[in-house]
């Protein structure tokens, strides 16, 4: 039995909670076999993003980076030769995620990779996760016709937000964090105070 990482009380108003907004780059998209090669983490605290608290790390995978993945994020095996293996960064990841609510864009990808990585420590993610792609669908800001996850970049542009280096784990995590601020602020129009469980429910209801 694996122990879940601690998460904040779901009744906490979102403006009083801490979030960890995470984005991963991987060797490919096979959720069972591919591995994490970099992660970017952005903290949201009191509904603000402190730019000094961001984290970006690269990880050396035990399998090659697929050609299609390289064309997306540009990271090759040679770029990662000096990076630590995943086991060396797990404590850092656990520290980032404990006591915070995980936020990711198309979060099921992050959940799958993280849970698999955490298994070696007998841990897994908390039950509550917020997915900005789902929040976009809920706000009818996603292009539903394609059937695919709404593009982070396109959503940010549509909302007039600055887009940070796309397809870079930290750049995408930061854009995702901005998306969270906007979408949660908009949800406050109808739900006040907006609590973590509200974000989670909407996220669940509109998951892909």
């Amino acid at each position: 039995m694996t122990a879940r990482l601690s998460t904040p009380d779901p009744r906490t108003p979102w403006r009083e909670a801490e979030f960890c907004v995470l984005d991963l780059e991987t060797t490919g998209l096979d959720l069972r076999r591919d591995e994490i090669i970099s992660y970017g983490a952005v903290i949201v605290r009191h509904a603000r993003i402190p730019c000094g608290d961001v984290v970006y790390r690269q990880v050396r995978p035990s399998r090659p980076v697929s050609a299609s993945a390289v064309t997306v994020h540009g990271l090759r095996a040679a770029d990662l030769a000096d990076a630590p293996p995943i086991d060396d960064v797990l404590n850092d990841l656990i520290g980032l995620l404990s006591g915070r609510l995980l936020v990711a864009h198309a979060a099921w990808v992050e959940r799958a990779f993280l849970d698999r990585a955490l298994r070696s420590r007998g841990r897994r993610l908390g039950r509550l996760v917020v997915d900005t792609a789902a929040l976009l669908r809920a706000a009818r800001l996603a292009d539903s016709a394609t059937g695919r996850e709404p593009s982070l970049e396109a959503a940010a542009q549509r909302l007039g937000l600055p887009v940070h280096t796309p397809h870079h784990a930290l750049g995408d995590a930061f854009t995702t964090a901005e998306l969270l601020l906007v979408l949660a602020t908009r949800m406050e129009r109808t739900t006040r105070p907006l609590r973590l469980r509200d974000l989670y429910r909407v996220s669940q209801h509109h998951s892909a």
Binding site: A47, R48, G52, V182
Partner: peptide, 11 residues
């Protein structure tokens, strides 16, 4: 400077 910036969104 950037390390001290906090981003905030206002309705």
């Amino acid at each position: 400077l950037v390390a001290r910036v906090e981003v905030e969104y206002f309705a």
